[in-house]
Amino acid sequence: MGRSDTLIFGCGPMGQEVAEQLIGRKLPVYLYSSDLDRVAEVLAKGFDAAVLDYTDDDKLRQVGIGEWVKVIFCLFPEEAKNVFLTLSARALDPDLKIICVSESPQSGQKLFAAGASKVIDPYEISGRKVHELIARPMIVDMLEHTVFGKHLDIAEIEIPSDSCLSGNPLSALDLGGRYNVVLMGVVDVEMSDSLIFSTSGVDHKLDAGDMLVVIGPALEITRLKGDLEEDRTAQLLGG
């Protein structure tokens, strides 16, 4: 099946917010909740939503968990429901991406233990953001208006298998001259998920399948992506 739906469990404000963001990126999204009133509310707002008993594995299978669904969000306000759903979904599909919200560090650990791939703590993040606003207001302002304000995008670009970049060191790559982008670094997906910064002492050897992480205007990023795919990038290798 060629579908790759995203399911959101929990139709509260957070569910709606996430759904809106995902729809904004043209991703197919379905909202589910066991609460009829909530479902009616989101349906009225124009989302695809349905009532679902998340405790029943068969029902979960029916909506595609373990089959074609790649990502689910557990956004119930109740911690226990999220843990239960995470456990059930993990049992059905070991490769599923399960993203949960947690209210506290302790519950985050429980969710990870239950099999969540990522736990978002909205309060932790908001708290840090408030602190940043106090400590470094200028930088936060700048980021608000650029990276989070849709002027600049953060993008990951995969190096194609037959690219002439592979085999060259990261330091040899000079994007800044030809594209109006900033190269943050590279992630070697085979090794780890962490970013190797382009300025860290480690001179990483580029390799097909590595992800280049860049920041820049959307147009420039598309141009870079296109050039990489068609392998017109030999000139990027400066000295």
């Binding site: 993040i125 943050m184 992630v187």
Partner: peptide, 21 residues
């Protein structure tokens, strides 16, 4: 909630870059 939405959307689209950044 908005922050969660933003992170969630980025995470679905390009998990590697977003997490790092």
């Amino acid at each position: 909630y908005e922050i969660v939405g933003l992170i969630a959307a980025e995470y679905v689209g390009q998990p590697v870059a977003f997490e790092a950044i």
